[in-house]
Design a protein around this nucleic acid. Structure first.
Lengths: 246, 246
DNA sequence: AGACCAAATATGGTCAGACCATACATCCTG
DNA sequence: CAGGATGTATGGTCTGACCATATTTGGTCT
């Protein structure tokens, strides 16, 4: 089990890794934040004493991680700008490792279950304590209701799944945790294709909609246990072949 | 809220993105898996009709996502080899977005709570159903006990936290879900520094160890509710200033 | 035959320079 | 003052060269 760390155990750092470290230092030291610009590639290369290609590799890494976005041209929006889009990185990560069979579909679905169960339970609990909450939960349940209506009106599985994703994303957002929402979004992005298959296989979306209404009602009623149970039942119905517990 | 997707909305794909897509296609089409090698950079460049620098940027992205590892030299282990190490990607992702204040420490701790609570509850439930389980749960509780003993013997906060991480990782592994474990590992990697601070601030590790023993016992007793509650109490003690619910 | 050492070679790592594409900035003209 | 032509900063890409590393190959000595 411990065959890890076989590659590049020590080895002196590559130029682009040094660049990466320096940029991260600079972000922390200068208190840079979303919207701020990094120096141009040529300027960075000169400042750090490396070739421009090494700078570009470092920027590519940061772009992959959703931390910078590059834009050619001139003006205030050009160059490498700090952003914060962890979503696509998470999605790419999941999709690729799924493709390598290093993560199974069951595990993805299972992780989704964990997050969604707890998010539903929390949403129910916070509905209980009235509107002291930041209203996040309130608008979330409203969006869930909208999504249910949209699913009723959907004319094909693809459209249905789009609104289904919106429903479950709203559920995750009730947690008020951006990190959890980002993970949830990545999970759903990767599952989109399989969700469409599942809807086609089921043929009828009535059962799924019953589940959705049950989840929504449990949250509004402030019944955490029922909400969690409804989520579990829903996923078991949508993915009957996965090795979900219970 | 919808200022997203402002950058590169259409634009023709960059060369390295094309390379990325082709490599991913090839992985799927040829059924490549962990351990297989990709063609050399020069060869890929020629095959795909792009410059070597574009190939290198694509490989850098894949390396960032933990999908390939490159090694210079000659022989079966040289070149770009497919791997599956989502861990460092998740850690880098979290650390950088935390640095940009796009994710808060509270959210990281809160996500950890969600995962760990459910993992503990499941571990307890599977302990109940005897040894029909794949023994994952069994060895996990054993490793938890070892970690508790090691924490008792720890001589400084850094050492204590190392074993604390081992304890909580073992807990996550009881879920049998590699994806969850990878996320948990990233969360703990990022939290390491703050965990040491927390231990120093508390001064005494007795309370934390009481919590650990309570969690361990609840799992062995098969009491899912008690296990989840013990996890929540433990995190509330370790991070009293975070906005954890309850 | 075997052991050891030296050269060849394949592979990634890095740099320099050139040129293209893009999009704003600037300036000139009517 | 409006509008178009030109300038320029910025990322995107390619080529070619050279370095660093590690295995393979082959020769030489014992």
């Amino acid at each position: 089990m411990t065959t890890e760390e076989r590659r590049r155990p020590d080895a002196r750092p590559r130029a682009f890794e040094e660049v990466l470290a320096r940029i991260e230092e600079r972000i922390a030291a200068d208190g840079l934040t979303v919207g701020d610009r990094l120096p141009g590639e040529r300027q960075l290369a000169e400042q750090l004493g490396v070739g421009r290609s090494s700078v570009r590799e470092a920027l590519r890494v940061l772009e992959t991680l959703g931390v910078v976005a590059s834009q050619a041209g001139r003006g205030p929006d050009a160059g490498a700008v700090l952003t914060s889009r962890p979503g696509s990185a998470l999605t790419d990560l999941l999709r690729l490792h799924l493709g390598l069979a290093a993560v199974s579909l069951d595990e993805v679905i299972d992780t989704r279950l964990m997050i969604e169960q707890l998010a539903a339970a929390r949403a129910a609990a916070s509905a209980d304590t009235a509107s002291t909450r930041t209203a996040t939960a309130g608008t979330a349940t409203a969006r869930m209701a909208e999504a249910i209506a949209a699913m009723d009106a959907a004319r094909d599985p693809v459209e249905f799944v789009e609104h289904d994703i919106a429903f479950h994303l709203a559920l995750a957002e009730a947690s008020g945790n951006r990190l959890t929402v980002a993970v949830m979004r990545a999970l759903r992005d990767v599952l989109r294709r399989y969700a469409v298959d599942a809807v086609v296989r089921l043929g009828d979306t009535g059962g799924l909609q019953d589940d959705h209404r049950r989840i929504h009602r449990a949250i509004e009623d402030g019944d955490a246990e029922a909400a969690a149970a409804a989520v579990a039942a829903h996923l078991a119905r949508a993915y009957p072949d996965s090795g979900l517990p219970a």
